[in-house]
C-alpha cells in the first residue's frame, strides 16, 4: 500500500499538499490542469523532490531516506527514457544491472522482456532507429524487468498519435495486472483515465485529492473536475 502522509512540497510561490493512500494493485490516474502539480507529486514519490513536510511510505516503510534508484519504484518520464548511445537490449538490461554486468541468464531475460512488449529481435538497435511507439515499449520492457511494486508514469505517451496511445495504455494496464504492480499515471487526458484507471486522483489549486473511483468521479464530477473537463 502506498501512503502519502501530510506531504507538503514548496517552491518559491507554489505549494502542493497531498494526504491519501492507494491500495496495492490499483491503477490510478492523476488528473488536473497543467501546472497544478501532477508531475511534482510523482517526482516526490519517485524521490526527486525533497518534501518540506510529510512522508511517503510503501507498505509502512518510510521512503524518505532512500535514493531514487533504491526505492521500490519504476519511473517512465515524459521523454529521455532511453540512453541514445546504448542499444535497446542494453537500455532494457539497465533494469537488471545499472553497471550492465549481465549474465547469459540476464540476457535471456532481456530478450523475453522485449518479446513481452512486442519487440522481438530488435535488441541490437539503438533508440535512434526506433519509432516513438517502439521507444515507449522499450521503457516498459525495462520497467517489467526491474519488477518494482510501484510503476510511475509521467505522461509518457503524450507524443504518440491517438491509436498508438490507446495501444500503449492497454499494454501498460496489461503489464501492471500481470506483475501485480500498483500504477500511478499522470495525464491531462480524461480519456486515459477512463480507459485503464480504477481510481482518479484530482490535483487542483495546489492540492492532490484522495483517489475516487473512476466511474463515480466522471458520473458525478466535483466542481474542479467539471471546470477542467469543460462542456464535454
Amino acid at each position: 500500500m502506498l501512503t502519502v502522509e501530510d506531504l507538503r512540497i514548496v517552491y518559491e510561490d507554489f505549494t502542493l499538499t497531498a494526504d491519501f493512500t492507494v491500495e496495492t494493485g490499483r491503477k490510478v490516474a492523476i488528473l488536473g490542469p497543467s501546472g497544478a502539480g501532477k508531475s511534482t507529486l510523482l517526482s516526490a514519490i519517485a524521490g526527486f523532490e525533497t518534501p518540506a513536510a510529510g512522508r511517503v511510505l510503501w507498505d509502512g516503510e518510510d521512503l524518505g531516506p532512500k535514493a531514487p534508484g533504491a526505492r521500490p519504484v519504476s519511473v517512465i518520464f515524459q521523454d529521455n527514457n532511453l540512453f541514445p548511445h546504448l542499444t535497446t537490449a542494453q537500455n532494457v538490461g539497465l533494469g537488471l544491472s545499472p553497471a550492465l554486468r549481465l549474465s547469459p541468464a540476464d540476457e535471456t531475460k532481456v530478450e523475453e522482456a522485449l518479446g513481452q512488449v512486442g519487440l522481438e529481435g530488435l535488441g541490437g538497435r539503438k533508440p535512434g532507429a526506433l519509432s516513438g511507439g517502439q521507444m515507449a515499449r522499450v521503457s516498459l520492457a525495462r520497467a517489467l524487468l526491474r519488477h518494482k511494486p510501484l510503476l510511475l508514469l509521467d505522461e509518457p505517451f503524450g507524443a504518440l498519435g491517438p491509436a498508438l496511445r490507446v495501444e500503449m495504455l492497454d499494454l501498460v494496464a496489461d503489464l501492471a495486472e500481470r506483475t501485480g504492480a500498483t500504477l500511478l499515471m499522470v495525464s491531462h487526458e480524461p480519456g486515459d483515465a477512463r480507459r485503464i484507471a480504477d481510481d482518479v486522483v484530482l490535483v487542483h489549486d495546489g492540492e492532490a485529492h484522495p483517489p475516487v473511483n473512476t466511474a463515480e468521479i466522471f458520473a458525478n464530477p466535483p466542481a474542479e473536475l467539471a471546470a477542467y473537463l469543460g462542456d464535454s
Binding site: A67, P68, A70, V73, F83, H85, P98, L100
Partner: peptide, 25 residues
Amino acid sequence: TQYGRLADSLGMSGTARLRRLWLPR
C-alpha cells in the same frame, strides 16, 4: 539535465554512471 533523473531512477551511480552515461555521451 537530460538523463540525470533517468540514471538516478535506475540506480546508476559511481563507475556505472561514468562508464555508461558520462564517457559515451
